[in-house]
Design a protein around this nucleic acid. Structure first.
Lengths: 335, 335
DNA sequence: ATGAAAGCGCTAACAC
DNA sequence: GTGTTAGCGCTTTCAT
């Protein structure tokens, strides 16, 4: 319908459309007085440049794509709101694409890429580690930023937190409360994050001069059930741990559930800590002590890098995590 | 970069670009033989029409917008994957916009609308009920479909489930197991869904010839904590319920948590049912019996309606819910 | 510092 | 049935 176009603005400001374009794109060679006049016209008319026209004519598409998979993870919302806020401020828009794993992955990406020109792509786990996707992107020369990748760290810029340090800090938190026998539930062996978290736990224990008994460390796979199974073994130990640190929140809830069943009160008889600060930390009592990743911020920065260009530097950009201490951790009963 | 355009296809198929356009848009008046030749050329070249150009020139933008707010709710993923699947099949793309509540709401919508022409908008709760948004959309004449709206049901097409019937069915499930004293935890009074679920519970009880004792129904606000508080009162009753139906999953988890603390085993001593089938149903043991809304399907249908046009009919389109019976409900101990 | 003209890749009217 | 010609609303050259 009769939308207002650049022509209307030009007419109102009594300049050519090119000058309007210059002002809007912050190009040089515009007299301040003219600039003000144009801006006033834009404001008066409530003009917003048509995004399709810009994309067609210019070199930028004003569009950032967000690639994700099966959107069950709770962080998808955080990712989106982070990316969105940057985009909005920059006049960009966010296109979401679901990249399913399977034979068609590569074709999906290529179809998307050739149909709509985007200025960059944000990759979220687990797509962040999908080789075919990186390949397709590289071939087309489409810039991308990866969020929390686990592999191929040489393939383009990415954002991450120091998982090992976070696990170290959480373990130190438990140690500082007075715990000595601290159990650990490992994550899924395929995830590099699982390895790093385990290693952080070990380092903190060693630093405190505590020798980790092999029976204190149980395997897990990031699921509630695996956490529960691990807890059953840990809490059956003759000299059972006074605290259990699970590599993610779901498993920590599994631990709490078993503790309840065994009539151990959390945190009086057992402290429990998780990792991720997912929404499930709110559906237990006491609420779960955990580590929060700055997911939203990561996404915002990723968009930033794509829109304004990444200042050169190391490929990986480290962001701060946050220890969230809630009711599930406390000094051990004897303390 | 030198992307392949409609001209390349036209040259290869030895027809005019208009004919290519006709084939691609399924317009009539193309000889079958020509059609095949064009399609072959498209395939050989791996051609995909440029989306910005189509949007600029044509009447369709090949773009559907998804309006949501603070994307914490677990269903955002479901919504997106549903909408996405329809879009992908139709050659459309999905643009997500975050519409925050507040003074700027209306301006946000208008800015988005004037910057990018979309063929339609899918509204998810709570934006689905935001009046300013509906107004802005109506003014621009942009079609929209609302998902599970609670108010202003005369304002355009929407998709919903029969919340009352679902609650009726869940209550009937508990009754059929042999429960008679069934407690109920209400949802947040501002949500119309809360009212409907409560009413469904009442109807089922009455139909079974059971008079609902006022002490069996407790207030809640959809939060874990409110569910726990309600359970404390319900389970302290002299003749306590053998089953508790909470209006959503978070509250049901609150109920389970209190039951555990009181050393009541679920489902042996107490059956617990929820509503929503959110991911938290998986982080308890036993897993929660609940009601699943076809969120993903709703979104897919919404996109369908926007892309292919809604066949006229009633504004509201009813979809089927599903009773998910898991381990948290069983016959009462005495049965 | 500003403007005129030429497209970007496609669809919409019309011609044929 | 098929092709021709204008644009869609902008950004790019390239003049001035």
């Amino acid at each position: 319908v009769g939308s207002i176009t650049i022509k209307d603005v030009a007419a109102k400001a009594d300049v050519s459309i090119k000058t309007v374009s210059r002002v809007l794109n912050h190009e040089p060679n515009v007299r301040e007085e003219t600039r003000v006049r144009v801006l006033a016209a834009v404001d008066a008319l409530g003009y917003t440049p048509n995004f399709a026209a810009r994309a067609l004519a210019g070199s930028r598409a004003y569009l950032i794509a967000l690639y994700g998979d099966n959107p069950s993870p709770s962080y998808i919302g955080d990712v989106q709101s982070g990316a969105m806020s940057t985009c909005r401020n920059a006049g960009y828009h966010l296109l979401v694409e679901q990249i399913e794993d399977g034979d068609a992955t590569r074709r999906t990406v290529e179809a998307s890429l050739s149909a709509v020109r985007v200025d960059g792509v944000i990759l979220t786990p687990p797509v962040t580690d999908r080789r075919e996707v990186l390949d397709a992107l590289d071939e087309r020369g489409v810039p991308y930023v990866r969020i929390a990748p686990a592999e191929n760290l040489d393939r383009g810029p990415y954002l991450y937190i120091d998982e090992e340090q976070a696990a170290f800090d959480m373990t130190s938190h438990l140690l500082s409360l007075g715990h000595r026998r601290i159990g650990f539930v490992k994550g899924h062996p395929d995830h590099s994050a699982a390895r790093l978290r385990h290693s952080g736990y070990g380092k903190a224990m060693r630093k405190a001069g505590i020798e980790v008994d092999a029976s204190w460390v149980e395997a897990g796979d990031f699921s509630f059930r695996s956490g529960a199974l691990a807890a059953e073994r840990l809490l059956a130990l003759p000299d059972r741990p006074t605290a259990i640190f699970a590599s993610n929140d779901d498993m920590a809830l599994g631990v709490m559930s078993v503790a309840n069943r065994m009539q151990l009160s959390v945190p009086r008889d057992l402290s429990v800590a998780g990792f991720d600060d997912s929404p499930v930390t709110q559906v237990v009592w006491p609420q779960l002590t955990t580590v929060r990743q700055p997911i939203s911020k990561m996404a915002a920065e990723a968009a930033q890098m794509l829109i304004y260009g990444a200042e050169s530097g190391p490929l990986g950009r480290l962001l701060e995590f946050e220890l969230i201490v809630r009711g599930s951790t406390a000094p051990p009963a004897g303390a």
